[in-house]
């Protein structure tokens, strides 16, 4: 892996970090999370492809690694679905602020 490639990947990652921090000062409504996660995923892809040499690695290793994300997606989606369906039965618990409790 040539040095110029490492350096350009690093500068791309830094630029994306600056974009993420910069865009945080705007409101995009529902797209906020999607946008932030999109940028993070592009950064993650850059790290995986070049720093982790996944672009040049054995396909088997790539499959194993990507499979983990499939399982993470299954895990999170199923759990969130479960919470969505059960959320109406959750009883909200409200407690007093600690500052009031201590009276200070």
């Amino acid at each position: 892996m040539p040095v110029w490639m490492l350096l350009s990947v690093f500068f791309a990652l830094t630029a994306l970090t600056i974009i993420t921090v910069w865009q945080a000062s705007f409101h995009f409504g529902d797209w906020d999370v999607a946008l932030v996660m999109g940028i993070a995923t592009v950064k993650a892809a850059l790290v995986m492809l070049f720093f982790m040499h996944l672009a040049y690695d054995k396909p088997f290793n790539v499959i194993i690694f990507l499979a983990s994300f499939v399982f993470v997606a299954l895990f999170v989606i199923l759990t969130i679905n479960d919470v969505r369906q059960n959320a109406p039965t959750f009883e909200p618990v409200y407690d007093e602020p600690p500052a009031v409790e201590s009276g200070s």
């Binding site: 290793n61 194993i64 690694f65 983990s68 993470v72 895990f75 999170v76 759990t79 969130i80 919470v83």
Partner: peptide
């Protein structure tokens, strides 16, 4: 060695995914 390392990294990702899941909920 590398295959073993990738398998370890998979367990790491699944390990952290629990926390990301808690965060999401």
């Amino acid at each position: 060695g590398k295959l073993g390392m990738w398998l370890f990294l998979v367990t790491e990702i699944l390990f952290f995914s629990g926390l990301f899941c808690a965060y999401a909920i």
